[in-house]
Write a protein that binds this DNA or RNA. Structure first.
Lengths: 204, 204
DNA sequence: GTCTATAACGTGATAGAC
DNA sequence: GTCTATCACGTTATAGAC
């Protein structure tokens, strides 16, 4: 998923896609290195522009962080919309959601943006913390609906509230992506299979 | 767990426990803020000494990181030794392990040291990465033994290899501690209950 | 073992020309 | 919208006195 980005120069020499290019690259850096471990300089170097140009689009790093969360949220909404349009069922939705994490892993060992920001939570600007909390809640509510629908339909089997099962699944996905850096990519695919076993999903 | 630390002045005005005090505080900072989000200055300020004194004990931050992993590993070995000494069974061992994470959470919303370092993995000095990988492997091997013994004894019920189930549990614990920063402490205790349900443990 | 002082660098951020 | 130039600050790290 190279993401939707740049190219499409305006009549002048300026590129109207710079803002989007910054967002796409910054999201990559966030997922690969963490919010505190990438800088405006890194972005400028890899985009072939100057730091000041980055500051023009995102005056402070808190602004950039907020835009990153909004960007990721928009990507999720797009994905959800596409799934709904093709009438995906609970199993397809859950596996599709897991596949997103798998794509992150295979794209250079990236982690979940939310998982990264929550790991660095205490050092984040307060407005960014609030945005993280809001998106985290939204994602878990979506997944709880998927799990509950799947259980009613006899596709998933688990005890307890769907909201609690969601906590195990999202924590596993976020934590599993981090562990995979130390334990290898195979650890994550094995973990995914175990998550399915724990839901009573039988693989032929 | 205020940790074992300082006090016990030597004949001169110097404290022989400075090294241990640095380690204890740095571990706190690592778990609360992350490896990239605490500095020698933070340590010096809170200990009432100068930065140079910290560098005397741990010349580079990589040295400090390696010592932190060794320190945490020693704490785990102590805990494991105490459990073995009192003949703890699989359920007691698993719950004791989960309780460690719960203590972290309640001690100011700290996370697992390994979970934090794995989240920042790409930005860590290579030697530190290797130490993280080694300890991560050791902890999962220990837990796999606990799970397998518990399954044989009819205490735990789960499908698939114990090593895979361990991946779900450790990823859940590490990820759950991060999510708790955004979702609140209750999310973590609910997740722990779900982990027990998923192991067929019945709570009266 | 701890201190003062400083070096060398990277960071987020701003001013003002083009 | 991007540039050059600069600032103020925090960072890791070292030298040398006490």
């Amino acid at each position: 998923m190279p993401a939707t980005q740049l190219r499409a120069a305006s009549p002048t020499g300026s590129r109207t896609g710079t803002r989007e290019a910054i967002l796409a690259l910054a999201l990559d850096l966030l997922q690969a290195r963490g919010f505190n471990a990438f800088s405006y300089q890194h972005i400028a170097d890899r985009l072939g522009i100057r730091k000041a140009a980055v500051h023009y689009h995102f005056p402070t790093k808190a602004d950039l962080g907020l835009a990153l969360v909004a960007h990721y949220r928009a990507q999720f909404e797009d994905w959800r919309g596409a799934q709904m349009e093709k009438g995906a069922g609970p199993l397809q939705l859950l596996r599709g959601y897991m596949a997103i994490s798998l794509h992150f892993l295979r794209d250079g060992g990236k982690a979940c943006p939310l998982g990264v920001l929550e790991a660095e939570f205490a050092s984040l600007p307060p407005p960014l913390r609030e945005a993280v909390t809001a998106l985290d809640t939204e994602l878990r509510e979506f997944l709880a609906g998927v799990l509950e629908a799947g259980r009613r339909a006899g596709i998933f089997r688990f005890d307890g509230p769907a909201a609690d099962k969601v906590l195990v699944i999202t924590a596993s996905l976020q934590g599993g992506l981090h562990i995979a850096r130390a334990a290898g990519a195979r650890s994550f695919t094995r973990m995914l299979r175990q998550l399915e076993r724990d839901l009573g999903i039988t693989n032929d």
